[in-house]
């Protein structure tokens, strides 16, 4: 292939979602591959020009090569073999996991944190403790959405999933972020020796009020912003490919 065709193949691979580092590696190996074909043909007695033409023909056009490469990655991973199903199911699973993890982290660290604040003479009054709980809960809602989206997008990129499936994953995660309504109630301690009591619930639904809520829109936007950050180079390549 000519330098221009290699460059075009690089743009196609990037536009379909491959990371810049991997594009460089794949192009380097394919270039070696083409040289090896040419050298083999020359060793069989073909002239350099003829061997070059034959090698190019065997490598195929850029679109076919890109298809072969992406199909090669897709066949090796479960997500690649069932992209639609897993791009929808994994965000649901991640929400369940993040919820369980949030409860566990809360149980493990929140009690000791309140105890430490009490020892330090800070946050002993119930209004202060409640404000602290609600502040951390608000922060946790955004952080957990970001963690779920980050893990999914990182896995998609690492496993060379096509960008359209990564976008579907981010979209479903964003939608779940919008539709989820985690709910925390904090009230004075019911058990002697405790600093605070509370209950945590998570629901999924749709209400007109959600559209007025900055909280819901923030959780909707976090996965999409992360998608744009993860795939910024790929989105640029996609735009360059379209522009010709």
């Amino acid at each position: 292939m000519t330098g221009r065709e290699w460059k075009r193949l690089g743009v196609i691979l990037a536009a379909r979602g491959m990371s810049a580092g991997r594009v460089g590696r794949v192009l380097g190996e394919l270039d070696d591959h083409a040289r090896d074909i040419r050298e083999e043909l020359e060793a069989r007695g073909l002239g350099p020009a003829e061997a070059g033409v034959m090698a190019l023909r065997r490598m195929g056009d850029t679109e076919t090569l890109a298809d072969n490469i992406f199909r090669g990655y897709a066949r090796r991973t479960l997500w690649g073999r069932h992209p639609v199903f897993l791009s929808i199911v994994l965000p649901f699973l991640s929400v369940a996991l993040v919820t369980v993890a949030a409860v566990m982290v809360g149980n493990l660290f929140f009690g000791p944190l309140l105890k430490a604040l009490e020892v330090l003479g800070l946050g002993t009054g119930f209004p202060v403790v409640r404000a602290l709980c609600m502040g951390l809960f608000t922060l946790g809602r955004y952080v957990s959405t970001a963690i779920a989206a980050w893990f999914l997008l990182r896995a998609a990129k690492k496993r060379v999933l096509e960008m359209k499936w990564a976008f579907l994953t981010a979209g479903v995660t964003a939608l779940l972020g919008f539709l989820l309504f985690p709910y925390l109630r904090v009230f004075p301690p019911e058990v002697a020796g405790k600093i605070v009591s509370g209950s945590f619930a998570v629901g999924l639904g749709l209400s007109a009020a959600f559209f007025q809520s900055a909280d819901h829109w923030t959780r909707f936007l976090i996965p999409l912003v992360l998608f744009a950050a993860f795939y910024s180079g790929n989105l640029k390549a996609s735009w360059r490919k379209r522009a010709g």
């Binding site: 591959h33 490598m59 090669g72 990655y73 090796r76």
Partner: peptide
């Protein structure tokens, strides 16, 4: 194998 398709297999095996 189609030309170039061996590399994804090698990369995934390496990862």
């Amino acid at each position: 194998f189609p030309e170039g398709s061996i590399y994804p297999t090698l990369h995934v095996l390496e990862e």
